[in-house]
Structures are given as C-alpha cells and as structure tokens.
Amino acid sequence: MEKENTKVSSRRDFFKKSGAIAGGLLLVSMLDPLKQIKALAGEKPKGKGAWYGIGVDLEKCIGCGSCAKACKTENNVPKEPFFFRSWVEQYSVTANGVVKVQSPNGGVDGFKQPVLDKEIEKSFFIPKSCNHCAKSPCEQVCPVGATFISPDGVVLVDETYCIGCGYCVQACPYACRYLHPVKHTADKCTLCYHRIKKGLAPACITVCPTGAKIYGDLNDKNSDLVKFIKEHNCTVLKPHLNTKPKFFYNALKEEAE
C-alpha cells in the first residue's frame, strides 16, 4: 500500500510541475496572439511608406513579349508554356463583335505576323501580371498566411511556408498564379521585390523597348505612376470584383475589362 501511495504522490508532483510549466508557457505565448491581433487591427503602414503599383500605356505596347521573356529569366520561372508570372495577350475583335484572345507561349517568343484578316476590326495587346490588389482575394483565402500583402503593397508568397493547396490559384480572378512544379508552392509576380527594394526597376519594365510599362509609388505625388494616372484615362481589369487592383491600364478597350 505504501509503495502505491508514494507512486501516486510523485505522479501528482509531476502533474503539478507540468501544470506550472504549461501555465508559464501559456502566459508567454499569450503575447503572441496579441501581437497578431494588433497587426490585424490596422497598423498597416498604408499612408506612410511606399505603396507600389504598375501602369501600362496600351497605346505604346507593341506586343514584343520582352517583358514575359525577361520575367522568366529573372525569376527562374519554369520554361513550360503554362507557367507565367507575366505574359502578353492579343485580343482581336471582328466586326460582328466576336472576341478572340491569343497568347502563344504567353508571348515569350513574340507574336507571329498575323495573316491579314479583313474580318478583324480592331486588335490590341495587353500585358498582364499580378495586379497587386489592395483587397487581394488570394491573400484572403490562403489557409496558412503564406500569401500576404507586404507593407509597401506588394502581394508576395512565402515559399518556405506555402503548403501548395492551390486555393489562391482558384481565387485569383486574373489567372496570375500557378503551382510551381519544382518548389510545389504557389508562385506569382513579386513586382521583382528583390529589385525594387534595391532601387532597380522590375525586369519587365527594365526591358520594355517602348517604355509602355512603368511602376511607381502611389503615395508619392511626384512618382511616374501617379503622373501617368493623372495624365491618362486609366482603368483596371475586372473593376466590378472590387479587388482594388493596382495595375493601371491606359486605353483599355471594353472587350478586355
């Protein structure tokens, strides 16, 4: 009997100790969630620092595909023709309103000179990439917080943390995400975050031969982008979805909206 008693009491001791440890840890980690809540409560430095966006003058875009090609090089995007961070589409509209969209290999190899088709009334190129939405649906649906909006308004992916569920790929109305076949994580345009933070332009903008594409800080009244938006009649893609995209197009035709 005695033996059993000591056993019980020592077990109780153990429980007490572990209980104390647990309590201590609970207190320590109570600080963690508070930190998260604080961050959620709106300490996002929207008004203070940079708030990046992109602009494209479609009148100047010649559909050479340099941006799409440079993006693949700069960001090690897989060569297969269905992985793109940045790509170019050509819209062709016939007289009776039929819209045809082409994007052979995302425009990486350029567009072949089309055979003259008298049916086609107008045609235009649209370079596309992540719109870096201020209310991005991809960030909203990510189950683990691997996709986020950086303090300067760039939508990024935490590759080391992404589980690759692909939910963000469905959620993106602009089809700018894909699952990386090697990393097995979601992958997308980062606005060349590694370049802009060092003061360089993103690769696509660096190589654009006509200067059709620009980027800039929307909080800086003197930035190229803010001037561009003021001077041109800019629209965004799918404005009715209210995702607040920050990719501004000048002279966007109604067929593409």
Partner: peptide, 10 residues
Amino acid sequence: IGNPQKFWHM
C-alpha cells in the same frame, strides 16, 4: 496539396 509535409501549417 503540393507540399503535404507542410500540412500541419493549417
């Protein structure tokens, strides 16, 4: 999911 070994993140 692409990274099942990271499933516990969820």
